[in-house]
Simulated scan of single mutants.
Amino acid sequence: MDIRDLHRDLIELHGRPNKTYSEDGVRQLLTTILSQNVADVQTARASKDLFAAYPDYQAMEAADHGELADVISEVGLMNQKAERIQRSLQAIREETGGEYTLAFLDGMDTDAAQAWLTDIKGVGSKTASVVLNFHFEKPTFAVDTHIERLATRFGLIEASTTADQAHDVLNELIPDDIKYSLHVLLISHGKEYCSAQNPDCDNLVCETYCDCEHC
């Protein structure tokens, strides 16, 4: 399969996605932590509650752990995610000498920036890639459950491929200039057509590229 052909046909079906980048890298990181294994609606609610509850990142880092977990109770694994949020804020503060900014990552190459983020316990390849691509416009390709499912059905990865392996394979396979748009397009396709259960295969992309049992 030519990955650019897939990209072209996804644009034909869904339209070319607009580039929308986050203005605050720390907020992007914390929101992505909240989104781990959670639906978008729950993430949005928990994110709204989190940033309304504290006046700044310093207060968020210093908050009582149980209180913070209650604030983000809309999402699953709230205790673990509260730990990840405070651990991330601590790592950022210590790296910058007291500031809550990820601006220093902009001066790193992509691999070094990815390594710095994933060195924080609870921040995996997907979370780091979202931050680097959606805030810094670095050429990373985040692999979530939708993308992993479609990549398997489209034959880009094997069914036995782990999440970390999928990240490595797809980042190597997908050209840098389409990483952002293909990420957005595959998620849109996974939600609208190629769902986990009862997918709608009556579309050009699935008919051309998908080899799942439903097609």
Rank of each mutant, 00 (worst) to 15 (best):
D64L: 11
T31R: 03
Q42Y: 13
S125V: 02
E12S: 15
H214F: 12
I147R: 04
D119A: 15
I120A: 05
A128Y: 08
D64I: 08
Y100T: 04
G190V: 09
A53D: 03
L105D: 04
Q165P: 03
V205P: 04
T110C: 07
A142Q: 06
G25W: 05
C215K: 12
K48C: 05
D200F: 08
Y100C: 07
T127D: 03
A82S: 14
R84A: 08
D202C: 00
S195I: 04
T96I: 07
R93M: 00
Q42W: 11
E95W: 03
G122K: 02
T161E: 02
Y209K: 04
D211P: 00
Q28W: 01
A159M: 01
A52Y: 05
E207S: 13
G15R: 13
Q58N: 11
D56V: 07
G66Q: 06
S22D: 09
T145K: 05
D40E: 12
E94I: 09
Y21F: 15
A62Y: 12
Y54P: 09
Q114C: 02
T127N: 08
L132C: 14
L34A: 13
C201M: 09
I85F: 07
D144W: 07
V130A: 09
D111P: 00
T110I: 07
V41G: 00
L185F: 11
I72D: 01
D24S: 08
F104Q: 03
G98F: 13
Y57L: 00
V75P: 06
L29Y: 10
G15A: 12
D9V: 10
Y54I: 06
M1T: 15
I85V: 11
S35D: 00
L50T: 11
Q42D: 08
V143T: 05
R153S: 04
R153Q: 03
K126D: 00
T140P: 05
N198A: 15
S160L: 01
C215M: 08
P139R: 08
F141A: 03
H214Y: 13
V130N: 07
L204V: 10
L150W: 04
E158K: 15
A52M: 11
K81C: 03
Y180K: 06
F51M: 04
D164L: 12
K19T: 06
P175S: 12
E94N: 13
A39T: 15
N171M: 09
P139H: 11
K81G: 06
E12R: 14
D106A: 15
G107F: 08
H183I: 10
G107S: 09
A82H: 10
E158A: 15
L117F: 11
V123K: 02
L77T: 01
V205G: 09
D56Y: 11
L170D: 06
L34G: 12
A163H: 12
R87V: 01
S160Y: 06
D202W: 02
V131M: 01
M108G: 00
T31V: 13
F141M: 01
L105I: 06
L150V: 08
V130S: 10
N37A: 11
D109S: 07
A142D: 04
A46W: 12
A53K: 15
R87Y: 01
T43C: 12
E148A: 11
D211L: 11
T162Q: 07
L117A: 09
A63W: 13
S188D: 14
T152F: 02
